[in-house]
Design a binder for these strands. Structure first.
Length: 885
RNA sequence: GGCCGAGUGGCGGAAUUGGCAGACGCUCUGGACUUAAAAUCCAGUGGGGGGUAACCCCCGUGCGGGUUCGAGUCCCGCCUCGGCUACCA
């Protein structure tokens, strides 16, 4: 009867684990703790993709091995279930998105269980659970209640925000406004990416080349009231703390890049004269300047530059079309042109800006500023290649040493003044100095007055000091990171726990109040239909009045009708897994302290920037507010590589190369799928699918089965070769070598090589007529994290009643690994010319002597003079020779 | 354009501090078993050359240099592919 039959074995053991609650973890760790987390999936209608089980199998192996090594392991799974597809389905069918979402979750759960992952299912959650998003809303209230203290670099309760006297005297409204201006969650009317086809605004990250990431619809910019999260306040800590994390340098680099820290200087250019004629007033202004003001006055244009050393080469300036000074700097004769240009820029979608990026555009305002270092009048232009959202929204342009400025200067025939001399050996030096070619590298200062001759870095320091002394500038740091646009005009998301005060006419007064904590959660209202109305107002505006309006203490309020983006739920799910049923807190502090941080977090590289940055940001706020005990949530992070189709292309329906895990399990079983995905190659690498490969590991499992079980027998019995002998020395060496290799490889997440070692074990013992039971048991235990179903079945066959899930992990004995004799290569001039056998612990002299005595070697050495001998004990011998004269 | 990653047989991949390149698997070929097939088992499988044979020699880790007794691994200069990002001053 008993051929290897996964279809019979696997459901049986899955039911067993379920029934015995094998993988349910205690609330508190019992010994050494280990928190291993997978990036939870979005339960799409297509069901599980073969990419999902890749990371999930990796973490499952780590968890199963860790349990056997006596660790207390928490390994949960849940669903990131808010999002557009369910809502789009609802729009099409009129069915509530919750129905579709729950069906999809059921499918995902069934498929995950089918693969035998050792999750603690009692901790399962979905971000769409009302009891879950109650706490998402609670965290939003913390963000709303927090301001960032720059001095302490820490988020603090808004009640502790120092209120300036002038604000205090202006009354309660002014104080409230001042507080609102400092909250980590704040509102702003900002140009946003409005996508008419989806009927929603999108975050910058969701717009690719001016089109929506989802659906590829055109996106236009328009101003709208939005909730923003002040992630920029944490930019410095988000960058600095990367250092402490056990992440790949690549992902750290991605995050650093996104945060985009740069250092340079802010410099004030005087605009008191406006014209090319300065008179004496510039010198006067310069004389009376003492300190560099925190906020620029109206008589200067402040710029940010990373190259203050090129100040002498600034031949013009540019302000962004949205810059507040545009109007006042525009002279009467240029007014029409400037107005037209700015209007055009405002109407441009991001797509237009991108497409026109090759060609610079801009207009002259007619005004001049004065270069603080040399008093040169410098024309001020308006151009959209300068962004209002970065730095000060204005730049000094140095065409000789900046590619964009060079391009612009060429186009508008603006003078180009070289101030950095590339090294004398540079081939294009003359062209650079003549202003015919741009040079952005480092060099020596020229045409820079008293600073001539200084190197770029020295000059930077010196000029920044000079600017500071004279109150004309100061060192400054900037980040590319922008505040996080946090609201969406969708139905299927978390409602904001926020009320807008209304006046007697039902118009918003601008006052906002938080929904009290004890009134959470704010559930979604019942809607008759889910269609967006194509206006930027959110679908929740159609909610019934009893949801939409509230009266508290005689004041009428309207609920916030935006919802949170999908990122919200995934920003903190790892905390809820630790204490999923807690109705008093998002997580019990003792439990949080015991399990955090996450020891291993595995997921796709597509989340290397946004999800991980957002989650780290929330975590830091919760840390500052005393909710969590660690500064960082994810101590170790690993990104699995994408699995491609067998044609080496990304799997997609349109390419027809999608592999469905259900089909693979039906044909080969879950153990083969798991084993294959781990055997394909290194976890982090991109690799193509191969069905022959699946068949290969399936054959391996069959060989393991037959090594232990007699599959010719009518009824179940062990293979007659399995015996109670003591293992021979050679057998012991194989067993212990395998234990060591597999144990080490699991620790390194090098699963493909661990499997190869177990194949070698099996190839060896299959050839042995007597197979000691102890050896067979060791292999079954080693194999169990990878292929748990067959392992449980074999374990039982070997006479054990209990599951092997908590059986102690096999130990290896170093002394049994050693061979008494080793074979080492003998090289002559680096080429292998023979092999010798020597005792494993032979010293250099013995090895050299043995090598010289070797027949073949001595033959060859006779003809040559030995110049040098290199002996690496246990490794090789190399005779360096030259021809005899 | 910028940043990151990767180039090793027909394919996926393996190779402590630099130390026998190609572990393990797939594919393919031959053989055993079988009436036959499937399944299984055994052997071979980087390229070229020499030998009846046991064996022996040469070349070989994207390309070109370098360091070293010795380089897939380290250094310099390129090429190709993949991912992310893109006017951030």
């Amino acid at each position: 009867m008993p051929r290897y039959n996964p279809a019979a074995i696997e459901p049986k053991w899955q039911a067993f684990w379920d029934k015995h609650q094998t993988f349910t973890t205690e609330a508190m760790p019992q010994g050494e703790k280990m928190y291993v987390l997978d990036m939870f999936p979005y339960p799409s209608g297509d069901g599980l993709h073969v990419g999902h089980p890749e990371g999930y199998t990796a973490t499952d192996i780590v968890c199963r091995a860790a349990r056997m090594q006596g660790k207390s392991v928490v390994h949960p799974m849940g669903f990131d279930a808010f999002g557009l597809p369910a809502e789009e389905h609802a729009i099409k069918t009129g069915e509530h998105p919750r129905i579709q979402t729950e069906q999809n979750i059921d499918t995902f759960r069934r498929q995950l269980k089918m693969l035998g992952f050792s999750y603690d299912w009692s901790r399962e959650l979905a971000t769409t659970d009302v009891e879950y998003f109650r706490w998402t809303q609670w965290i939003f209230l913390q963000l709303f209640d927090t301001w960032f203290d720059d001095q302490q670099q820490k988020g603090r309760p808004i009640a502790e925000l120092p209120i300036p006297v002038e604000v205090q005297t202006a009354g309660d409204d002014a104080v409230g406004e001042y507080q609102d201006d400092h909250r980590l969650a704040y509102q702003t009317k900002a140009p946003v990416n409005w996508c008419p086809a989806l009927g929603t605004v999108l975050a910058n990250e969701e717009v690719i080349d001016g089109k929506s990431e989802r659906g590829d619809h055109p996106v236009v910019r328009m101003p709208l009231r939005q909730w923003m999260l002040r992630i920029t306040a944490y930019a410095s800590r988000l960058e600095a703390d990367l250092e402490s994390l056990d992440w790949s340098e690549g992902v750290k680099a991605l995050q650093r890049n996104w945060i985009g820290r740069s250092t340079g200087a802010e410099v004030d250019f005087w605009i008191g004269a406006r014209s090319e004629e300065l008179g004496a007033s510039f010198e006067e202004w310069k004389q009376q300047r003492e300190n560099f003001p925190r906020k620029p006055d109206g008589d200067v244009l402040r710029v940010y530059t990373t190259r203050p050393d090129t100040l002498f080469g600034a031949t013009y300036m540019v302000i962004a079309p949205e810059h507040p000074f545009v109007e006042q700097l525009t002279t009467a004769d240029k007014a029409a042109a400037v107005k037209a240009y700015c209007e055009q820029a405002a109407a441009k979608s991001d797509m237009d800006r991108t497409e026109l990026a090759k060609e610079k555009t801009g207009v002259f305002t007619g005004s001049y500023a004065t270069n603080p270092v040399n008093g040169q009048p410098t024309p001020i232009w308006v151009a959209d290649y300068v962004l209002i959202s970065y730095g000060t929204g204005a730049i000094m342009a140095v065409p000789a040493h900046d590619e964009r400025d060079f391009e612009f200067a060429k186009q508008f025939q603006i003078p180009i003044q070289a101030v950095v001399d590339p090294s004398e050996t540079a081939s294009d030096r003359d062209a650079v100095l003549a202003g015919e070619q741009v040079f952005t590298g480092l060099g020596a200062a020229v045409n820079s007055g008293e600073f001539d001759g200084l190197s770029t870095s020295e000059f930077k320091t010196k000029i920044t000091e000079w600017l500071t002394e004279n109150g004309l500038g100061k060192q400054a740091v900037n980040y590319k990171l922008r505040d996080w646009l946090f609201s969406r005009q969708r139905f299927w998301g978390e409602p904001f726990p926020v009320l807008h005060e209304l006046d007697a006419n039902g118009k918003p007064t601008g006052h906002v109040r938080a929904v009290p904590e004890d009134q959470l959660p704010v559930d979604l209202p019942h809607l008759e239909d889910f269609k967006p109305h194509g206006r930027p107002e959110p679908p929740l505006d159609k909610a019934p009045d009893d949801w939409l309006f509230q009266t508290i203490d005689g004041v009428r309020y309207k609920r916030e009708t935006n919802t949170m983006p999908q990122w919200a739920g995934s920003c903190w799910y790892y905390l809820r897994f630790l204490d999923p049923k807690n109705s008093k807190a998002l997580v019990d502090p003792e439990i949080e302290k015991a399990w955090m941080p996450i020891d291993l977090y595995v997921g796709g590289a597509e989340h290397a920037v946004l999800h991980l940055l957002y989650a780290r940001f929330w975590h830091k706020v919760l840390y500052d507010r005393g909710v969590v005990s660690t500064a960082e949530p994810f101590q170790k992070l690993v990104n699995q590589g994408m699995i491609l189709g067998s044609n080496n292309e990304k799997m997609s329906k349109s390419r027809g190369n999608v592999v469905n895990p259900d089909d693979v399990v039906k044909e080969y079983g879950a153990d083969s799928l798991r084993l294959y995905e781990m055997f394909m190659g290194p976890l982090e690498q991109v690799k193509p699918w191969s069905m022959e490969g699946v068949n290969g590991v399936y054959n391996f499992l069959g060989r393991v089965w037959r090594m232990i079980v007699d599959d010719n027998a009518e009824n179940f019995c062990l293979n007659p070769a399995v015996c109670d002998d003591e293992p021979t020395d050679e057998q012991n060496r194989v067993v212990h070598k395998t234990i060591k290799a597999v144990t080490d490889d699991i620790a390194k997440l090098s699963f493909n090589t661990a499997i190869a070692r177990m194949m070698e074990f099996t190839n060896f013992f299959t050839k042995q007529d007597r197979r000691p039971r102890a050896a067979m048991e060791s292999l079954v235990l080693l194999l169990s994290p990878f292929a748990p179903h067959i392992a449980e079945e074999l374990w039982r066959s070997l006479g054990h009643e209990k599951s092997l899930a908590y059986e102690p992990w096999p130990k290896y004995d170093e002394s049994l690994l050693k061979e008494s004799e080793v074979e080492i290569p003998v090289q002559i001039k680096g080429k292998v010319r023979g092999k010798i056998r020597v005792p494993a612990d032979a010293d250099q002299a013995t090895i050299e002597e043995t090598a010289r005595k070797d027949e073949k070697i001595s033959e060859q050495l006779k003809l040559k003079a030995v110049v040098k001998v290199v002996v690496v004990p246990g490794r090789l011998v190399n005779f360096v020779t030259k021809e005899k004269d």
